[in-house]
């Protein structure tokens, strides 16, 4: 469509916005899972986010967005010596896509006409060093989920089919959105997302009116409306870039690490991914707010989004997982 809705103009939904921004600061946090009811602006936010991301440098003609010439896979013969800047790729993975289109496959046209084998890249190549966005992630077919899990874990896409043997790096941040009432997500895939946020429909009348007003202004003249928010967007972009630069100068004390570990043990989350995400996300938040070191306040703020989807489901406990995390954090930190 035309100009996306400006990211800064989204009313409320602070958790979702924060989670997205944090992954832009530290890509190692992993993906974001956005769950919520219909009409809460999940898709709008993510499409807006794509517009906010800073550009990246890529080798011209490289189909997998390699940064340096040395990273270009050996099967690529179109890469030139030059580099240029492109917007951080945000690739949409539509439902109903075939696995060929995701991993890439034999270039049929080339094979038919030239009688030679050539690899045609798929979405995983396009999404390298960027974002892969799956709307309705809970409706995705199981075998595609498996495939994505595998690549997300190894950071490499390996294609062995039709006599082709091709591999390339595919490191992307997974963003998924969906409505839990339409189907659950597999625990393995849940765990693969670094952060999870739940979006609710705006709670107050004023907020709702504001949403409608802004949407209306945007619909009437999207270009002009986007321009009027340019300044805000730019401010946020600069903030992200500064945070990204300072990220590794933010120190994390042992007592903070200890505290994170304790929270995870108390919640009984499986594996160590919980702790890692917790620490990384807290550090990204500290960098975003301009702090020199991580303190307990940041851990407290981000614990629910980093952990709530990793809990073992206990259907007999009626409290939502978010509340359980908060309870546990309260207990440990006091």
């Amino acid at each position: 469509m035309n100009t996306p809705f400006p990211f800064s103009a989204i009313v409320g939904q602070d958790n979702m916005k924060l989670a997205l921004v944090l992954t832009a600061i530290d890509p190692k946090i992993g993906g974001v899972l956005v769950f919520g009811d219909r009409g809460t602006g999940k898709s709008t936010a993510i499409r807006a986010f794509a517009d906010l991301l800073p550009p990246i440098k890529v080798v011209t003609g490289c189909p997998v967005n390699s940064e340096h010439h040395i990273d270009v896979p050996d099967w690529v013969d179109t890469a030139s010596k030059k580099t240029h800047r492109i917007n951080t790729p945000v690739v949409d993975l539509p439902l109903g896509i075939s696995s060929d289109r995701i991993t890439g496959a034999l270039d049929i046209e080339y094979a038919l006409i030239e009688g030679k084998k050539r690899f045609q890249t798929g979405l995983l190549a396009k999404a390298n060093r960027g974002y892969l966005y799956i709307d309705e992630v809970n409706l995705l077919e199981d075998h595609l989920v498996d495939l994505l899990l595998d690549v997300a874990q190894s950071g490499e896409n390996v294609v062995e089919r039709e006599g082709l043997s091709v591999r390339h790096t595919s490191q992307f941040i997974l963003i998924g959105s969906g409505n839990p009432e339409e189907g659950e997500l597999r625990p393995q895939l849940l765990d693969r997302f670094g952060l999870s946020v739940e979006v609710l429909t705006p709670g107050t009348v004023d907020e709702r009116i504001e949403v409608i007003k802004r949407r209306d202004d945007y619909d009437n003249n999207s270009d002009e409306y986007a321009r009027s928010w340019d300044k805000e967007n730019k401010k946020l972009r600069t903030k992200i870039q500064r945070a990204k630069k300072n990220l590794y100068s933010v120190s994390v004390d042992t007592n903070i690490l200890e505290c994170c570990a304790k929270i995870c043990i108390d919640l009984g989350s499986d594996g160590l991914r919980g702790e890692l995400t917790l620490v990384r996300t807290a550090r990204a938040l500290a960098a975003l707010t301009g702090k020199k070191s991580v303190d307990i306040a940041q851990v407290k703020k981000i614990a629910p989004m980093a952990l709530s989807h990793r809990l073992r489901r206990d259907p007999l406990d009626d409290a939502g997982s978010g509340t359980r995390v908060e309870r546990s954090v309260e207990k440990i930190i006091g």
Partner: peptide
């Protein structure tokens, strides 16, 4: 007018319509 818009928002809540999309459509 702001009044009319607010009335729409409030009535939607009264009718138990929590999604915001219908309100936008009603206004349009």
């Amino acid at each position: 007018t702001d009044n009319q818009r607010k009335a729409l928002v409030l009535s939607a809540i009264k009718l138990g319509i929590y999604s915001i999309r219908p309100v936008i459509m009603a206004q349009k």
